[in-house]
Amino acid sequence: MEHWRKSAGAFWAGFLPPTLWLLAFFFVPLSLIWAFSFGEKSGIIDIDLVWTFENYARALEPLYLGIFAKSLWMATITTFICLLVGFPVAIGIVFAPPKMRMWLLLLVILPFWTNLLIRTYALIAVLRTRGHVNFALEWMWDHANSFLTLIGLGSFSLLGERFEPLQMLYNNTAVVIGLVYVGLPFMVLPLYAALDRLDRSYIEASLDLGAGHIRTFWSVVVPLALPGIASGIVITFIPTLGSFLTPDLLGGPDSQMIANVIERQFKSANHWPFGSALSFLLMYATFFGLAVRALMSRNEQRGIR
């Protein structure tokens, strides 16, 4: 076959359509938003491009900085929990019998096949006051109480007069639960890929040299899976930071994240310039995260070299 540089026709045929697509539907809208962020609202839908930094100044007011900080905090906690839960899951899948492995991976990917909105409503059904978790707790409460009655302790109300359902919805905890639920596959898959690539003989060599399983995990498995861990953190953290559906549906009045504020500016508040400025600040924060990751991987490579 000819080198692609030589057959210019084939090169342009392959190169042009996606480039035009990106230009038309990614670069142009993004540029508009970028321009809007320096604009001024002059009517219900009119925006004057006056190249003002006023929107950014407002975005950096304590109120919004606070929401930014809160979003970063929620995303950090979510990512951390995902890592904590995802690592054992990934290890379990890697070490499962080959036949089981495909099915376990399917279970991890399965949520992707269902709409996020539907999954979130399902989560509401699980967590709400009269939801499945509380039903299960109430069932256990009833049975524990009958048992106490049976052994003659029924009259002391050791478990309270009546069952108090847990308030699990419409607070920050609910949002984190929801975000972890959404983010977990993003964490498990890169971890799985990294652990699957890991040569088993490294683990065996460590055991052979006298290390126990825990020691082997920390001094061999984790360092060698570090690139996968870093990827997992980044691709869980970024979408989590920008999520608005989960905090909107599961959160309380104080658990809005920055994306909720942005959404409101574009919709109910109808202040596109300010929303644009917030969007770009969020994007810059994301870029910062990616830059840190790139820097880390460069140090990693230098470390191995």
Binding site: D199, S201, Y202, E204, S206, L207, D208, P223, L224
Partner: peptide, 20 residues
């Protein structure tokens, strides 16, 4: 007796020299 408690050591076919 677990592998890490045995009085033997092994040289692996792939050498398994820790890259990090």
């Amino acid at each position: 007796v677990q592998p890490n408690k045995r009085p033997v050591n092994m040289v692996f076919q792939s050498y398994a020299v820790f890259p990090h």
